[in-house]
Design a binder for these strands. Sequence first.
RNA 1: GCCGAGAUAGCUCAGGGGUAGAGCGCUUCCUUGGUAAGGAAGAGGUCGGGGGUUCAAAUCCCCUUCUUGGCUCCA
Length: 641
Amino acid sequence: MIKITLPDGSVREYEPGVTSHEIALSISEGLARNVLSARVNGEVWDSNRPIQEDATVQLLTWNDDDGKSTFWHSSAHVLAEALEALYPGVKFGIGPPIDNGFYYDIDLGDQEFGEDDLEQVEKKMLELARGKSQFVRKDIGKAEAVDYYNGKGDEYKLELLEGLEDGQITFYEQGNFTDLCRGPHIPHTGFIKAIKLMNVAGAYWRGDEKRKQLTRIYGVSFPKQKELTEYLELLEEAKKRDHRKLGKELELFTFSEKVGMGLPLWLPKGTILRERLENFMRRAQIKAGYDPVVTPHIGSKALYVTSGHYEKYGEDSFKPINTPHEGEEFLLKPMNCPHHCEIYKSKPRSYKDLPIRYAEFGTVYRYEQSGELHGLTRVRGFTQDDAHIFCRPEQVKEEFIKVINLVLYTFKALGFDNYTAQVSLRDPENKSKYIGDDALWEKAERQIQEAADECGLITVTEVGEAAFYGPKLDFMVKDALGRSWQLGTIQVDYTLPERFQLEYIGSDNQRHRPVMIHRAPFGSMERFVAVLIEHCAGNFPLWLAPEQIAVLPISEKYHDYAQQVLTTLSEQDIRGFLDNRDEKIGRKIRDAEVQKVPYMLIVGEKEESEEKVAVRKHGQGDQGSLALTEFVEKFRAEIVL
RNA sequence: GCCGAGAUAGCUCAGGGGUAGAGCGCUUCCUUGGUAAGGAAGAGGUCGGGGGUUCAAAUCCCCUUCUUGGCUCCA
């Protein structure tokens, strides 16, 4: 007998060769019906794979992320089976599960494939699912595997096989389809009850744009029809939060074909929102010892040759601007740091001056590929809440920690709690992508991790995500549709001070090189506002709302009093407007609600005679009447910042 | 940049080889109303731009611009 330890710590005894499915069956039949796979000694296995020795076993169902992954991975195989049935000769790349479903990359040769073709594939998949074909795992020798794919002429699978060692290769077979696959899989296709193929996209083989582009089909599947329906409804709801939609509805920003793609135009209401955020950051930065600076939008090409930006990005950047007669070359600034370095150099610095912290809401311009532009989150011209800290080497960690705290303070003030802190390191396989020497990189990488640890930040590490001049600590946030965006960023940089020959005189009267920290808590105003809009679904905190109050007179007779109310509030820096349209009160309320105005002040005969306002709160309805001064107090109390 | 989808009134969208449509918004008039849409009338479009097929193109074909779902990229 072997001992099986379950997650609750209980130990049960079984014959060697018992499967997780049988273990489930010994607990309850209902559980057995729902088991998709099992974590055996930490590794996810097929539920019908025999266990020969003592093991800890966690049965995985739809409620476990790993269970879902198994389910979607198997769904990808069913997709492949359907495609092979409908498009003979199709070749397969990879078909993994992802966060919300699965995809398969395929090569259809000359055949065209569009979104209209999805329905047919979906139907075929459901038909195959109903067939309840078992997923059969097979160990297979490398030579045999190579023979199999040579026979099919599938160069992609052959390439994958090249990277695998003989003796560790497995095939999975279900119905008429066999796939090179590590597994695990669900017991049979019948578990899959609902399928939706979402879209078709191009995807480069092995993520390399120089290689062939395959057709990627994205899909999602569920054990119950109802879950699919709910998922699709959730997607619809998420679309309502999309900052591009809300940005238009709430008149925050717009784009114009004439101005140019990726160049946002901030409308008056969006500008108020943005300026509130900027002022918030200005205040926080002044408290934290930053000195504001201002630099121009262009800089001599030589500046970026020095910084290394020209060499790194010059080729696929906006082209230089030339002066008409002299032919001098200037670049639209893609970064503020070179300018700030030159400010640092404007006079000799003593160790007593450091750290020096230069802050600027600097607008930068970067060429982004047309297909990559996206609302306010990916644009060609944007404003960073940028700052560069020049400090002594021994001050790096302390300064870095201060910046982390500034970022965390900012996120907290805005209710962002679902961020991921990501340590972005250099790709050691591909050092030519970066500038600066190894020892300095290693030092910087170590300092970032230490600072994050000391702040108690839980971090994930991404290799190859560093900036070309240094490692980063990035704060990532997801948008309404689950896409991840980088907001705040903090970067330690030993390279630019070197390239710009920055110096300070130490207590030893010798010249020393300062260290730079690049940082932007918001990242860019554009992207931050986009994520903020989606985060609060357009219901901004009171201090940020472009329009904080709407004064709504019951009828024309109260326009004068309403105007008086508005004027009084404006004098107290409360932003609002008077709706003096010839409409009924219900209509005015509805329109103010739709525009997500936090407070509506309704004034009629009663209010005028008592010098009060009837307060209505967005989304919550009537709050009763208050004297104007009482309302202002209540209003102020709500603004904690 | 690449693969897929799309562009019709200010907005959201229907239509589809032969007088250009709806709802909302806008203008004017009526209505002076108490907590999520009062009524009527009217204005508004070279159907993204260019070329082709056709007696006839918003509709079919090609090119182009922009938007969009992905991929690659992201200082």
